[in-house]
Amino acid sequence: MVHPQWLRSFATLAELGNFTRTADQLGLTQAAVSQHVRHLESEFGPLLIRRPRALELTPAGNALLDYCRELDKADERLRTRLSDADGTNGEVSLITPGSIGLYLYPVLLAFQQANRGVVVRHRFAPDPEVVEAVLQNRYELGLVTLPPDDARLTASPFTSESLELVVPAQETAHTWEDLARIGFIDHPDGQAMASRLLSRRFPANPGVGSLPCRGFCNHIGLILEPVARGLGFTVIPRYAHQAFARADAVRVVDCGSPVVDTLWLIHRSEWPLSARATRVLDYLRQHVWGCATTPFPAPA
Rank of each mutant, 00 (worst) to 15 (best):
M1G: 09
V2W: 04
V2H: 03
W6K: 11
W6Y: 05
L7C: 06
R8N: 05
S9V: 04
N18R: 03
L26C: 01
L28C: 10
L28K: 10
T29S: 09
Q30D: 14
H39D: 06
L40A: 07
E41M: 04
G45S: 03
A54F: 15
L55I: 13
G61M: 06
N62P: 07
N62S: 13
A63F: 08
L64Q: 12
L65T: 09
L65W: 02
D66W: 13
D66N: 15
D75Y: 07
R81C: 06
R81Y: 09
R81D: 12
A85V: 15
I95S: 09
T96D: 00
I100K: 00
L102S: 08
L104V: 12
L104I: 10
P106D: 03
V107C: 13
Q112Y: 08
R116N: 07
G117R: 06
V119M: 15
V120H: 09
R121M: 11
P128S: 08
V130Q: 02
V131K: 15
V131D: 06
E132C: 07
R138G: 15
E140F: 00
L141H: 08
T145G: 13
T145W: 15
P147K: 14
R152E: 06
L163D: 04
E164A: 12
H174R: 13
T175N: 02
E177R: 15
A180K: 08
R181E: 14
G183H: 00
D186P: 14
A192Y: 08
M193H: 13
S195D: 07
S199I: 11
S199A: 14
R200N: 04
R201C: 11
A204D: 12
N205K: 12
L211C: 09
F216E: 00
H219S: 15
I223W: 01
L224F: 05
P226H: 03
P226W: 01
V227C: 01
L231H: 00
R238Y: 07
H241N: 05
R246L: 15
V253A: 03
C255G: 09
G256A: 07
V259H: 00
L263K: 14
L263D: 12
H267L: 05
R268L: 06
R268M: 05
S269D: 05
S274A: 10
A277V: 02
T278P: 09
W289M: 05
G290Y: 11
C291S: 12
C291F: 01
P295V: 00
P297L: 07
P297K: 11
A298K: 14
P299T: 11
A300Y: 15
A300R: 14
